[in-house]
Structure formats: C-alpha cells, structure tokens
Simulated assay, not measured.
Amino acid sequence: MDDLTGFQRDLLYVIAGADQPSGQDVKDEIEQYYSSEINHGRLYPNLDTVVNKDLVEKGQLDRRTNYYAITDEGEQAIEDRREWKSQYVD
C-alpha cells in the first residue's frame, strides 16, 4: 500500500467498509469525508488503479453499474498499514 496515494488509500478503506458498493456509492462516501465534490475524472482512474493492483475486485451489477469489493490482498494491505501506523500513533 506504500505506493498508493492518500486518495487511493481512502478509496480502499471505503470499499473495505461497505458491501460491494457501486462507484456512485464510493463517490458519495468519499465526498462526505472530503467535504467536496469528486469528479468522475478523478474517481474512476483511481478506482482502476486499486483494481489493477489487485487490492479491489470490480464486478458488474447490471449493464450500467459496477460494484467494487476488497480482495484478500486489499485486506492484507490494510492490516499491514494498520500495523505500521501503530508504531507511531495509538
């Protein structure tokens, strides 16, 4: 996870905390956290990055809607990050 941007890490956390959210669901959650609008040109390329790194799985709910789900590798990356952070912050 050390090669992800902060935004990509935040996407990973949102996806891990939800049950197969759609891209719109992820967008809504991340906009609440950032308190600003996130455009598609920022969201979807970053979602593609975490998918391409095998941290997230992308599937299709219907012809227009994809879902995202955390993979085992993504769960492990979150746990590794949590352990690393715990050395510095309680």
Rank of each mutant, 00 (worst) to 15 (best):
Y44M: 04
A77P: 09
G17W: 03
S86L: 12
N46G: 01
F7P: 09
V56H: 07
N52W: 07
G74I: 04
S86M: 13
R42N: 10
I15M: 07
G17S: 01
R42S: 11
A18N: 11
G59T: 10
N39V: 10
Q76V: 00
Y34I: 11
L11A: 05
E29P: 01
G74S: 05
Q20T: 10
E75F: 15
E29T: 08
L55M: 10
D54F: 10
S36Y: 14
S86H: 13
G23W: 04
K27G: 06
L61F: 13
Q60D: 12
N39R: 09
L43F: 05
Y34C: 13
R63G: 00
E29S: 12
Q8P: 07
V26P: 01
D10M: 14
P21E: 06
R82T: 14
Q60R: 13
Y68A: 02
R63I: 00
I78D: 01
Q20W: 07
T49L: 10
G41W: 01
D28N: 11
V14L: 08
I30L: 15
N39S: 10
N66C: 12
D10W: 05
L12Q: 04
T71N: 00
G17V: 06
D48Y: 14
W84D: 15
R63Q: 07
R82N: 14
P45F: 02
A77K: 10
D2V: 01
D72W: 00
E75S: 15
V56G: 06
A16M: 11
Q8S: 02
R64T: 12
D19V: 11
Q24V: 14
L55D: 08
Y88R: 10
V14D: 09
K27R: 15
Q32D: 10
Q87S: 01
I70S: 07
D48K: 15
Q20Y: 08
L43A: 05
W84P: 02
S36H: 15
K27F: 02
A69P: 06
K53R: 13
F7M: 00
L47P: 08
I38M: 05
E83Q: 12
S22H: 07
E31Y: 03
Q76N: 06
R63W: 00
G74W: 04
Q20F: 10
L47E: 05
R64H: 06
D3I: 06
Y13K: 15
R82G: 07
I78H: 02
D90H: 00
G23E: 08
D28L: 12
T49R: 11
A16K: 14
D19Y: 13
S35K: 14
V51S: 01
D54W: 09
G74F: 00
N52L: 13
D72I: 05
I78N: 01
L47M: 00
Y68C: 04
R63A: 00
L11D: 04
T49P: 04
R9I: 14
I15A: 09
Q20N: 09
E75I: 14
E37Y: 12
G74A: 01
D72H: 00
R64S: 09
L55C: 06
F7D: 11
V89Y: 15
D25K: 02
G74N: 03
G6V: 11
V89L: 14
G23F: 05
N46M: 04
V14G: 05
D28W: 06
